[in-house]
Design a protein around this nucleic acid. Structure first.
Lengths: 214, 214
DNA sequence: CTAATTCCTGACCATTTGGTCAAATTAACG
DNA sequence: CGTTAATTTGACCAAATGGTCAGGAATTAG
């Protein structure tokens, strides 16, 4: 954006819209993550996207609409992770894959995770219906899968619901609290190797914790 | 405030100040929790404390000062929990007590927990020095304790740092995401019994997960 | 080329914001 | 009681906020 080179060749009207919306959404995500819906201002978002505020309002008429789009995108990413927890017979394989996927998303998408946290803290004014439908259904079906593992003696009789909360909490933590973790890491972000260790540790403790025998 | 009975006997000037500050701080905590520092407004806080905005500014000259006080109080509560993780020889006893204490705080003080989360998400503009000093020192000393347990073969060789993050994440999750949990619980808050189960589950999985043999 | 369509943006506006202030009220104290 | 100090509050202000709009610039269609 700071570079004024207009790549004239591919600049069609359609492309312009697509690219600008993407830039704005990315800027919006980081501002909403940092300040919440109410604390975020459209001028901050516009500034972070390197466009005039009026231009932002051309693409997204209201702050609400922009926020909704951001939250929607995050929910779609979440759905993607949910898919990786398939109806598998082997708890080790299924859980390892799921935790890994969620940890990867936390690392690659820390801002989205924070927006989600903020939204829940505000008691989900925008996504309450998702929680009550999609999330609830998904959770119930996974609880059933976990319960089956228990009945088959593949894992210890833990309460499936709370096992899920545990997994969600760790993955969420590495995104939302990465500043705290970074500070305790001497002011430098976790390296890829460190993050891998964090991932392995989480998987190891949880799998061992529920008695998933290797 | 809504009741006009002036309890003349105990209404000394000192008491008035003390009580008003307490009321304001409580209101501020819940508003800051819900909207973050930037999203919170002094009139919302004043309204929730049932006093005129000008009166709030009489006790706390700026929003900053009020926020600082709120965050300070939360940090002190955190220190209280930290104490319960003493330099104990028995990992089962020490960790059980610590996790239990943190879970209790999450239940009794969900607003404070959310303010903390918001502050960290904003990259700790107010408490960065606490993180770098008090929290860092405390963490390092506990890492040493856990490492000793490992060296003595009392628990599996997990990375102590990441074990702490795991504990923090669950306790934080039950406070910050209680709305989501409530929604998945059919719209009703977790009962005391359910919360006890959550606590037991977390303790069980973590202790088993690190191989702390009973 | 021209006309239609989309994109861009400085200037503007009503409302909300954090914070002030002077005047009124209440309590404390001798 | 009367004087002093603390508390309360409606009215007010400058700055910031979400959003609008008219008119200009660029692209596309015919």
């Amino acid at each position: 954006m700071s570079k004024p080179e207009k790549v004239a060749k591919t600049t069609s009207k359609a492309k312009i819209r697509q690219e600008n919306e993407k830039t704005i959404l990315k800027a919006a995500e980081s501002v909403f993550a940092e300040f919440g819906f109410r604390g975020a201002t459209t001028s901050m978002i516009a500034e972070r996207a390197n466009i005039p505020k009026a231009n932002l309002h051309y693409y997204f008429p209201t702050k609400q609409a922009l926020y909704r789009q951001v939250v929607d995108n995050i929910f779609n990413i979440w759905l993607q992770a949910a898919d990786s927890f398939d109806d598998c017979d082997d708890p080790i394989e299924a859980l390892t894959r799921y935790i890994e996927k969620k940890m990867d998303i936390s690392r690659e998408n820390p801002m989205g995770s924070k927006v989600w946290a903020n939204e829940i803290i505000r008691r989900a004014p925008v996504i309450q219906d998702y929680l009550e439908t999609t999330l609830k259904d998904w959770t119930e079906s996974r609880v059933a899968v976990i319960q089956r593992w228990i009945d088959q003696g593949k894992i210890n009789p833990v309460d499936p619901q709370y096992l899920l909360y545990m997994i969600w909490s760790i993955t969420q933590h590495y995104a939302d609290f990465n500043h705290q973790i970074e500070t305790l890491n001497g002011g430098t972000p976790l390296s890829d190797a460190q993050y891998q260790t964090a991932k392995d540790n989480a998987i190891e403790i949880i799998l061992t914790g529920i008695g998933a025998h290797k």
